[in-house]
Structure formats: structure tokens, C-alpha cells
Design a protein around this nucleic acid. Structure first.
Length: 152
DNA sequence: GCCAACGTTGGC
DNA sequence: GCCAACGTTGGC
């Protein structure tokens, strides 16, 4: 069992959209960074738990928890010339980018702000802070427990 | 809108 | 393989 933090811009796709989706499930796609892709493709397993993080918005922070329901498969958007995520160098035989399916476990009653995460000495070494622009971030079990304990 | 950090591209 | 130029992310 591994723990992750996935970022999304709520203007594009926020936790409320996931809450309203059929079965509260969605495809997590559009990842176009190699390090994030490698995590998605190689390390993220069915049953892993994920923090849903809202980024690039007025109130950045953790909005809730998701669970992986389908492990990585080639992201269909890379083959779609109409998509913003189209990649002309990707082929069906040799895909570059991967997506996976998640479901909502719970939406936090209140968003847990980034400022509060930063205020925790136990979280000072988090990958989230060390590598600010990675959109698929691993968490240790201790970090996971610390963050969940901050949510009442 | 600004800027720091860092990833990607392309010439050589 | 190096590195400058450029693009993107994301907090503020």
C-alpha cells in the first residue's frame, strides 16, 4: 500500500466535480511530465490512497481523499488530435503517457490549506515541498497519518 | 502579474 | 553531451 498526492487545478477539475461524477469515479489523465508518469505507470497500484490537492488557485491545499480503482493504462488523450493533451509523437504501439482511474473516498469538511501543511515540523521533508512542481507526489505513511490527523 | 524553480528543446 | 533559450508550474 502506497500513499500519494495528486494535484489538480480546481478551475479545470476540482473535488466537487469528482463528487458529482457517476460512481464518484473518474479517469486521472493529462499527466505530461516524465517523473509523474513514471510514478503513475510503475508505482501507483489499485487500492493505493491519494490526497486530492488543489493547486494554482486562491486556496491551495488538500481537498479530500481518493483511491485507485484501475491501474495505469495508456492515456487515450495522447492519440486524439482534438485534445489539448494530444502528443503527435505517441503511438498506440509506443504510448508515452498514462492515465488511471480513481474514486472519491471522502471530501474533507474543510479544505486543509497548504499553509497549515507548511506549519507542521513533521512535514518539513515532504516531497511536495522539495519538488514543488511535481503533480504526482509520493507520501510516506507517517506523512499520510500526520496530514489526515490535521483534518477534523 | 510576478517570479523562482525546474523541465524541455534544439543548435552546436 | 553541453548549454542557452524558452516554456510551465504554482505560490504569492
Amino acid at each position: 500500500m502506497n500513499y500519494w498526492l495528486f494535484k489538480s487545478e480546481p478551475d479545470v477539475y476540482g473535488i466537487d466535480q469528482l463528487a458529482k461524477a457517476p460512481g464518484q469515479r473518474c479517469r486521472w489523465d493529462g499527466i505530461r511530465n516524465y517523473q509523474a508518469r513514471n510514478h503513475l505507470r510503475d508505482d501507483v497500484k489499485v487500492g493505493d490512497l491519494i490526497l486530492f490537492y488543489h493547486s494554482s488557485c486562491p486556496r491551495p491545499g488538500v481537498a479530500g481523499v481518493m483511491e485507485v480503482v484501475q491501474a495505469a493504462y495508456p492515456d487515450p488523450a495522447q492519440f486524439d488530435p482534438e485534445s489539448d493533451y494530444h502528443d503527435p509523437k505517441a503511438t498506440e504501439e509506443n504510448p508515452r503517457w498514462y492515465a488511471l482511474d480513481v474514486k472519491l473516498v471522502k471530501k474533507f469538511a474543510q479544505l486543509l490549506p497548504l499553509s497549515e501543511l507548511k506549519a507542521q515540523p513533521q512535514l518539513a521533508d515532504m516531497a511536495l515541498f522539495k519538488q514543488g512542481r511535481l503533480s504526482v507526489v509520493p507520501l510516506t505513511e507517517a506523512e499520510w497519518r500526520t496530514i489526515l490527523s490535521l483534518e477534523e
